[in-house]
Design a protein around this nucleic acid. Sequence first.
DNA 1: TCGGATAGGCGCCCA
DNA 2: TGGGCGCTTATCCGA
Lengths: 242, 242
Amino acid sequence: MDELRGKLSRSIRDREMVLLLCNCSVEYSGRAVSTLGWGDRLVLVKPDRTVLVHKPDGRNPVNWMPEGTNIEFLVEGDELLLNCDSVNPRESMVVRVRRVLCLESRKLRDGEELVSVGSEADMARRIYDNPSLISESFKPVSREEQTKYGFIDVLGHEGGVFTVVECKRYKAGLSAVQQLRRYVERLQKMKGVMEVKGVLAAPSITGNAKKMLEDWSYRFVSVEPPMFMDPDKSEQKRLADY
Amino acid sequence: MDELRGKLSRSIRDREMVLLLCNCSVEYSGRAVSTLGWGDRLVLVKPDRTVLVHKPDGRNPVNWMPEGTNIEFLVEGDELLLNCDSVNPRESMVVRVRRVLCLESRKLRDGEELVSVGSEADMARRIYDNPSLISESFKPVSREEQTKYGFIDVLGHEGGVFTVVECKRYKAGLSAVQQLRRYVERLQKMKGVMEVKGVLAAPSITGNAKKMLEDWSYRFVSVEPPMFMDPDKSEQKRLADY
DNA sequence: TCGGATAGGCGCCCA
DNA sequence: TGGGCGCTTATCCGA
């Protein structure tokens, strides 16, 4: 275990990516408190000192510590302890390693960042450029701007009446309606006008949300999500096409 | 690469955890579309056929596919392709591997699940059991129940007046106030009464949220988060204590 | 399966 | 640094 401790310390000092498959238990204390009993998991220490503990299933780590975590190793009997501490928020995690199945570490070179298309902002942009998606009379004024009324996706008017458009790239629920309502009310208050229209633009909407929308005299406009996989033409659907 | 392909196929067939450190690029198409240029990353295939691609930094995978993803390997020239497909939602990811830095796979045994304390539900329970945290006259009636008024955290009354308590384990923002507002209004409508009190119980609240709360004549009650790390007594803070 | 809500959410951007 | 909010959010839970 002492030898293991040395190797791990050097790897982390050299900012290598560390992969530790092991039988371990985990205790976390910070924003909550949790314990995880003994089992085989992957402990991953990244060069930026993010620490992840992954179970054999699921997308998310069962336990983790954020970037910049302070890590120290202790040998306690025949166990190796990964002692992790972080401030802001103050939290700590202890990984107790009983048996090592596999240990690898490598220095990685990665200069590329993800380029993604199809966000809600892209959807707002499309509506701004194609206002008829909302209505024939809709005239957009500002888009995704930090107006003093808040983060309104698309702001415009229909026949001189202020119109707030809230976009959702997925099916809209109650919280989307609430959000729209907040923007409309803020605009009414700040402009001192009663008549402000509210439009929820999304591919679909839940029943309850529809009802709430109608209660408040807002309206729903069905808009295709900004990006989706075409099952037949998946090969052609490349980022470059957009 | 053919040899590599065989090894990977066998590992996945045998439901092993696969760790592939490699130089790769990734294309994703589904709920959005994205590309990631060449770089060194960890490709992780879990026994449940979740696929993760991790960059050298950050808590989250830069690309991923959900549990149960269909995976096939293709050799294309001197590159290995990981072809991943999933339905519901329909999406696909292609990892193009140019160079392998390290490949390991192991069968894992993990029967333990995380036990965690300190959720919002725990907070609601504490308020239900200690109603004086809200006020001296507060009498709780139901907790975290699917009342016909919705998912109200704690419902009770103060001097005969219905009182809705919405809990947040972290600093409350605008959306928390809106949520409270929705519950209060639903209760007013269903009971046909005007006077329903709204209480937001959280460790703290943002300025805007406070203002909105006061606009609607609701009130804020400062309640400690359900669980937190005591810096001085971190050793004593064990799950068993709660 | 859908709908609603939480999460130790994370990560981004902007004041 | 805090506030507001989107996310390929994921994940849980109830109807």
